[in-house]
């Protein structure tokens, strides 16, 4: 199989590492070779973070490069815009319709762009969801990232049951049910 390239982008602290762990888990369970690349340390402190997941019959490099991503999963709108050029032709964007102002905007040194999702939709296939709102309805706002993952899962070729299994294996035991529910909100 040709290597599939997934990117997860967001703001440090939004749980990109958990999401990539679920993605890594499912690709191994499905019998693929997989490589993931993460950001730790300084870059996690509220900065822009990016995680790469690549799977296929044999994967060489662990990063996704500009012009090569099949799916861009963004936990925040501005981050979707920042990394949109990583997408290949026909690549899709799955974005949490949520705004977090970077410090450069808070201090007035920069302006947060308007109508990001509308703009991206002109050039890309964009699937947007207000996952924060959905997660709040579910009763745990922290589960928003798994909702976004559920929406992205529609663009990957794994069975629903396998997703739910891997989520159960990956998240803390107490949060299995809520994370599975969150996943299904995005997926269905």
């Amino acid at each position: 199989m040709e290597t599939k390239n997934i990117m997860i982008v967001g703001v440090g602290g939004q749980g990109t590492l958990l999401t990539s762990r679920i993605l890594g888990g499912i690709t191994v369970r499905a019998g693929y070779d997989v490589k993931l690349s993460e950001v730790h340390g300084m870059a996690q402190r509220g900065g822009s973070v990016v995680t790469f997941v690549r799977y296929g019959s044999e994967v060489a490099e662990p990063i996704v490069e500009e012009g090569c991503a099949d799916v861009l999963i963004a936990f925040e709108k501005l981050e979707a815009l920042r990394y949109a050029h990583f997408l290949k032709k026909d690549g899709v964007i799955v974005v949490n319709d949520w705004r977090i102002d970077p410090i450069t905007v808070v201090t007035g040194a920069a302006v947060y762009p308007e109508n990001i999702i509308e703009g991206l939709s002109k050039t890309h296939k964009v699937y947007a969801i207000n996952a924060m709102q959905e997660a709040e309805k579910l009763g745990n706002v922290k589960a928003f990232n798994v909702i976004v993952l559920g929406l992205a899962a529609r663009h990957m070729d794994f069975d629903k049951e396998l997703w739910l299994d891997v989520i159960a294996e990956t998240v803390p035991p107490k949060t299995v049910e809520i994370n599975q529910k969150a996943f299904l909100i995005g997926y269905e």
Binding site: R45, G46, E66, L78, A84, K88, K89, T104, P113
Partner: peptide, 19 residues
Amino acid sequence: EDMCLTQAEKVPARPPILC
């Protein structure tokens, strides 16, 4: 060869900050 289809958008930087 160049795989890049488009240039990166100019967007506000998001540097790491204290929590």
